[in-house]
Amino acid sequence: MDYLGQDRREGLGRRAHSRTTLVLLILVSVLLLLSSLYSAQASVFKKAREGVMDAASPVLSLIAGPVAYVNGVMGSVGDYFNVMEQNKALREENAELRQWMNEALELRETVATYEALQNYAAPPEAQPISAFVIGESNDAFARSMIVNAGRANNVEMGQAVVNDAGLVGRIVEAGGDASRVLLLTDIQSRIPVYIEGADVEGILVGNTRSNPVISFTASADDVEAEPGQRVLTSGAGGALPRGLPVGTVKGEIRGGITVDLYANYARTRMVRVINYAFPAIDHVTGEGDAAPEDGPPSASDQSAADQPPAEG
């Protein structure tokens, strides 16, 4: 193949072997890396990310269409071969779910009765925003998705993203009409969770593996959790609503409990962004328009409501 590599100056770079530019640009990259380390949330970088995401979202949507089609065809070819087993498994699951449904209906009635007896204030309803996954970070160490809903659809930073199975992640960048979802498996992901039945809260920490780990505070007692117990968001810190299903306990490793996520990222095509407003603390309670006693409450109210989600 010696026809290749002839030095003909026809490319974009007019000077061959421009080592100086190369070294200079390597230095620029390293500087950029260092500066983005110390100011990851700097507005310039944030603007650039959101701008590129917005600009790329039509192209990505265009690519995502045929990709989804091909994946669908390939997936259904696979399904033909095990349609029998799937049918059987689904029938069994259906029977089981029917029992659960009956139980849930009964419980709903009971809870409604109790709520009527007590003076119960329901938490604010979440407003889900539906979106398609148009991009995905296929990177060894960064796990995120790009969805085609942004600020124009009321998506904001910190909101929870779920699919039909459970929690997918949370919004870390909200562009005009596309947003980035940080997945639970990313090394930067930290989600407050609790284990159902174990009465203990912890933080779900991503580590790029498919099973993130719940870590507990050093002062916590020994946590006893059995495989199969449900893991749900605890809502601590007010960033996410309480009770979103995350996964099940898988096992125990040094320093935490591994979790089997409900969400299957390889099959996640459509998600819902949960537009949840954390109930603000209201100082003026009870008697109608009673005057506030200790100063104007508005400032502290605001800060409680606008608190940015605690990160790492």
Binding site: L25, I26, V28, L33, A48, R49, V52, S137, A142
Partner: peptide, 17 residues
């Protein structure tokens, strides 16, 4: 870097080196 959400400058450094 901008599209995958990683730290800026990472992939330029990898490719340029």
């Amino acid at each position: 870097d901008l599209l995958t959400g990683g730290p800026l400058g990472l992939w330029p450094a990898v490719y340029l080196v």
